[in-house]
Amino acid sequence: MSPGENLDPIPDTFILQPPVFHPMVPYVTTIFGGLHAGKMVMLQGVVPLCARRFQVDFQCGCSLCPRPDIAIHFNPRFHTTKPHVICNTLYYGQWQTEARWPGLDLQKGASFLIVFLFENEEMKVSINGKHFLHYRYRLPLSRVDTLGIYGDILVKAVGFLNINPFMEGSKEYPVGHPFLLYSHRLEVPCSRALPQGLWPGQVIIVRGLILQEPKDFTLSLRDETAHVPVTLRVSFADKTLAWVSPWGRKKLISAPFLFYPQRFFEVLLLCQEGGLKLALNGQRLGATSLDQQALERLRELRISGSVQLYCVHY
């Protein structure tokens, strides 16, 4: 982006907050756009061998004095005979009634992935891919704008994401795909094999950061003959996003242009009978047609261009 160039106005729902790697604890950060139903916060880390307790607070502000209200206080404790989690709410300096969950599946010295899923009436928490608890809101979720992490914890990564928009109405607990597991291993261009092709219901997830001086960005799916029946291309020159046919024809996708330098992005492709649906930063944007036989013949996912990749999952 050249000096003086302004970003196009983007709806808040399209803007994603970049992940944070290896923050020092205590760690406090603003949650871009606040919390709302349909948002997830992912926490990757390690429980130290000497850990007694740590806490993750979803706060209504970040002042030191007076202390802000804490809508959701998530507090694993290891110093008791039976490790457990306490959840609570701090309102006008007073803690409310504690809610306690035994059977904590966090081990000292072990890595973990915690996913906080925010729904209309309650927060759900999964630990290492398994649902652990749900906690009903005692303060409006709309008041939460700050995340605080304190205590005996080594944080590897914090991610802020939207629920997969293609899972609408599903009862399945959404799975968070870690950032850090991939962030130091993915080189660009990136190629991933699809040994069994694509099948209905499969979702391809690509997360990353646009580099400082971007030139191009392309996501393509290739078949066994190296033919490229599906290409998603970002043009930084004219700020467009388009499907490109095997014959070079472009079909523009009507959406705000989100691919600016140092901005985080998430691309989701859902395979269904008749083609692929696209979502960008948690918002559905349309589809491209492809028959089922062509989808099953796809054997390679390739990503190239001016991006740092954090996650490629399918």
Rank of each mutant, 00 (worst) to 15 (best):
G93R: 00
Q59D: 14
E296Y: 11
V228F: 05
F58C: 03
F179L: 13
G148E: 04
Y260A: 06
C311R: 10
V158H: 02
Y150H: 15
W243M: 09
H73Q: 07
N281T: 05
E172T: 13
A110Y: 14
M123H: 00
M42H: 04
N162S: 15
D8E: 14
F132N: 02
H84S: 10
I127D: 01
I127A: 08
K156E: 13
R77I: 10
E300L: 13
V228L: 11
G33N: 02
P178E: 09
W243S: 03
I31D: 02
L133Y: 08
L232M: 10
L285P: 01
F217V: 06
R138V: 00
W199Q: 15
F259T: 02
C50W: 12
P68L: 04
L211Y: 09
L280C: 09
E213Q: 15
L106I: 06
P3W: 03
R100F: 10
Y260F: 12
E119W: 05
H184N: 12
P9Y: 08
K277E: 15
F179T: 01
Q202I: 07
N128I: 03
V155T: 06
L211R: 12
D8F: 11
Y173F: 14
E187C: 15
G109A: 06
R207C: 12
M24C: 10
S170T: 08
F160T: 03
K251Q: 09
V115M: 10
P19D: 08
F217W: 07
S183Y: 09
R53T: 07
Q107C: 01
P261E: 06
Y173E: 14
K251V: 15
A37W: 10
L154V: 12
L181F: 06
V20F: 13
I210R: 07
E172Q: 15
L209K: 03
D223T: 03
P246W: 11
L141N: 05
T81M: 13
A51N: 03
L113E: 13
L211S: 11
Q44G: 13
L269C: 00
D238T: 06
Q107P: 00
L258C: 13
S306V: 02
Y27G: 02
L209E: 09
D216R: 11
H227T: 11
C50N: 15
V312P: 02
L139M: 15
R67D: 15
R249D: 14
P174E: 08
H79Y: 13
H84G: 05
G169P: 04
C271E: 05
Q292W: 11
P26E: 08
F166W: 05
A294I: 01
V188H: 02
L139D: 02
N88H: 01
F265N: 04
E213S: 11
D291P: 03
F265C: 01
W95A: 11
P195A: 11
V28I: 15
R192E: 09
Q17P: 01
G275Q: 07
G275H: 01
G45N: 00
C190K: 08
I72T: 04
F58R: 03
E266P: 02
E273K: 12
L221H: 00
P261K: 07
P178C: 07
S111L: 10
Q196V: 08
P9R: 11
R77T: 00
W199K: 13
V206D: 04
A242C: 13
S245P: 05
V307E: 07
F14P: 01
A294P: 01
L43F: 10
E172N: 12
V28C: 11
T97W: 08
T89G: 00
V206N: 00
Q292E: 12
D238V: 12
